[in-house]
Nucleic acid binder design. Structure first.
Lengths: 227, 227
DNA sequence: ATGTATAAATGACCCATGGTCATTAAAAAT
DNA sequence: ATTTTTAATGACCATGGGTCATTTATACAT
């Protein structure tokens, strides 16, 4: 088998300064992301990631303390992308609750990896990452929730703190809804084949839209009545 | 160490007929449930369960095909208890959206094991259980969602299919909200110590109440306008 | 150029744990 | 009593996350 030249370090193979280390780190993350596109999380071993990244397994642990930390970092990237898109959208004028709900649903459907990663955030990723790293992640998140939340508040005319709250609700709802809407292929096939189970399958976009519309209305309704 | 007589089979140690096997099965589930009260899921090994149940590890696999199947069964019991309580509540007259939301939040807070199990349903439990067993579980669930959903529809004056839909939404929302509201102890401590992170902590009851109220209103609002 | 020091990279190794299966022995059938 | 059946056992296996002594690329001094 031909050895890949996926690695961004050119002919030199060793990351010696900070920039090169960042590149290597990026290579590893890219490799993991590529695998994650085709494979469920539990099926991705560190050996796979190492091979895909063109390094030895031990090397991974020079850049990430645990497997979960690696994927938590990946999720961090996806979160950044998502919030960037959200901020960009909120900068456009004349946003209604319905239009926003529509946009959110559309945008999320276009980010399946993000959805899958968010779904395992609490139950898997945060469970085996050193506390300091988790806190770094949470701080980034909190900061973006704060700024985007404020924008959202303005754009949708929500009561104080309503923007952040809405974003947190979104985070609480989205993974559950996504899991309900998109079970693994074999399970999905079985469910669709059984009329008794049909009721358990939902359409992600439809449900999220309806839920968001209701919730935004609820928030807007409390505009005048604090507490 | 003194050997326990936790086992419900009296002096005879062997489960030979169906009834005795059910007892054994029950013993194992009880042992797992007891462990789960004090220990997070990932930390419970099959050896622990075996010891707690007073059997050998191999015996567990005579009653459950995988670890996940064991806990999925446990979740099935909790679901049954939850739907029983829900049905009982719905039989009482004069239920408003607010009162119901209040009741749901209260009842769920009183069932922390249920919440923890539901949280790992899709990501953990369903991943390593033979498809037929998952389908049995899903069928039970679908059946209770259908009947309780119908009752809910009546009690809250929801549009057709609104009851089941509401229950599914509840299922999508509750685990996420519970995870957000109750992180593991060390993480929680760190979050509370950091003012920047305070915004990420939410109160389960408050948020669920608000969310449910909004959603029920949303559903009731669509009463006259199908689709 | 050559030698030396630093630390990035390696991969053989450790070990915990889910799951298996040949063996044991309790109870039923004869 | 003897045989048959099958519940129960626990030594064993395979896998995969994580470690660390060793190797060696690179920077730096001479």
């Amino acid at each position: 088998m031909v050895i890949k030249n996926i690695c961004s370090l050119g002919p030199s193979r060793r990351a010696v300064n900070a920039d090169q280390k960042d590149l290597r780190r990026g290579d590893i993350l890219t490799a993991a992301a590529t695998l994650f596109e085709r494979t469920p999380y539990e099926a991705i071993t560190m050996s796979h990631v190492a091979t895909a990244a063109g390094v030895a397994k031990g090397t991974l642990y020079l850049y990430f303390p645990t497997r979960e930390a690696l994927f938590l970092h990946l999720l961090g990237q996806h979160y950044a992308g998502w919030f960037d898109a959200l901020d960009a959208r909120l900068r456009q004028p004349h946003l209604s609750a319905q239009v926003w709900a529509e946009w959110v649903a559309h945008e999320l459907v276009a980010r399946p990896l993000f959805l899958r990663l968010v779904a395992i955030l609490h139950v898997v990723l945060e469970r085996n990452v050193p506390l300091p790293e988790v806190l770094v992640f949470k701080r980034q998140l909190a900061s973006r929730v704060a700024t985007s939340g404020a924008e959202l508040e303005r754009a949708l005319d929500l009561p104080p703190a309503g923007g952040g709250r809405l974003l947190l609700w979104l985070q609480a709802v989205v993974p559950g809804l996504a899991q309900m809407a998109t079970p693994p292929a074999p399970l999905r096939a079985a469910i669709e084949a059984d009329p008794q189970l049909a009721g358990l399958l939902v359409d992600f976009t439809t449900e999220l839209r309806a839920l968001l519309a209701a919730v935004v209305h609820g928030l807007q309704g409390t505009k005048g009545t604090p507490e």
